[in-house]
């Protein structure tokens, strides 16, 4: 099997592979910057919490309308947004930190979802919601994913400066009368819509992986926000591409394959990354003159 047959042929031959690849590209462009900002805000696990919070909403949507993209997306979006807004609100007006308020609300959301699902019988195909099917991305899902990526990039272009200051020095932003709270909640909304977009392709639990793993890996390669985003997007797309091929050739489920490739990239970055990687730590080079 030559390189062309291994690396390109599957996408030429099969429409579902092409759609999956475009979905990965869109998720990389939209999700990666969001992931980078979550890492910088020290909210890496908040993505995980929100991905659980989305689950019950998507499940309710499924029960009401069957395997309907619109119903599941809307349900997931509402559930995620409610948890994000309540948690953000508690963090802004009480002394409780964001990690604690997110933990509290997503657990309530998750338990509610499990209760509803078990009360209405177990015929719900939760596996799709949980683990997704990248290889079954239809045109409507693709349109959703691409729209979300576009919306995300435009929104970030508008609130980018405020968002970075809000991460770096929230007290200053408040002191100069900057729109800290607005920026904060718009950002949380972006996290939710990106997870909703991701769960059709990857499942709620895997969607957060393509958002966080490349962002965490990028931290070992870059030292500025702009380069972090660039590295993270590139890594995410490369992982999507490699993961799809892996899943195609080895006949593995695509979502976990993509995330495991991203996990591998993270491990490699951890070892050889020039910004604080283990290699530089244990094999130090001679110090400089000044």
């Amino acid at each position: 099997m030559d390189a062309h047959a291994a690396l390109i042929q599957p996408f030429v031959e099969f429409g579902f592979m092409r759609r999956a690849l475009v979905a990965c590209l869109a998720l990389s462009l939209g999700g990666a910057p969001v992931g980078v900002l979550l890492v910088l805000r020290r909210m890496s696990l908040v993505g995980d919490a929100l991905s659980h919070a989305i689950l019950p909403g998507a499940a309710i949507g499924f029960m009401v309308a069957g395997l309907s993209l619109a119903a599941m997306s809307l349900g997931g979006f509402i559930a995620g947004l409610v948890v994000a807004v309540l948690s953000g609100f508690v963090a802004r007006v009480t002394p409780q930190r964001e990690d604690a308020s997110f933990a509290a609300f997503y657990l309530v959301s998750l338990a509610t979802g499990v209760l509803i699902v078990s009360a209405h019988g177990s015929n719900v195909d939760l596996m799709h919601v949980l683990f997704g099917t990248t290889l079954a991305v239809d045109d409507a899902a693709l349109l959703l994913v691409v729209s979300v990526a576009t919306l995300t990039l435009f929104t970030l272009a508008i609130i980018g400066r405020g968002l970075i200051v809000e991460c770096f020095d929230p007290g200053f932003l408040r002191a100069v009368g900057g729109p800290g709270a607005v920026v904060h909640f718009v950002f949380l909304t972006l996290v939710v819509v990106n997870l909703v977009a991701g769960f059709h392709a990857l499942g709620t639990l895997m969607a957060v992986g393509l958002m966080m793993l490349p962002a965490a890996a990028a931290r070992f390669w870059a030292g500025e926000v702009a380069t972090l985003v660039a590295v993270s997007s590139a890594v995410a797309f490369a992982c999507g591409y490699a993961g799809l091929l892996l899943s195609y050739h080895a006949d593995l489920p695509s979502g976990p394959a993509i995330i495991l490739v991203a996990g591998g990239v993270y491990m490699a970055s951890l070892v050889v990354g020039p910004h604080g990687g283990l290699w530089a730590r244990f094999i130090p080079r001679r110090h400089l003159e000044a």
């Binding site: 508008i158 400066r161 020095d169 007290g171 100069v176 900057g178 870059a222 926000v225």
Partner: peptide
């Protein structure tokens, strides 16, 4: 104790430029 994240990847210049927020604002 400013709640500043001093490990944040931002340059000295960009930090100082935040001082003209009143003029530059968000956009």
């Amino acid at each position: 104790q400013a709640g500043i994240d001093r490990s944040f990847p931002i340059s000295v210049m960009d930090t100082v430029l935040l001082g003209c927020w009143r003029t530059i604002g968000l956009f």
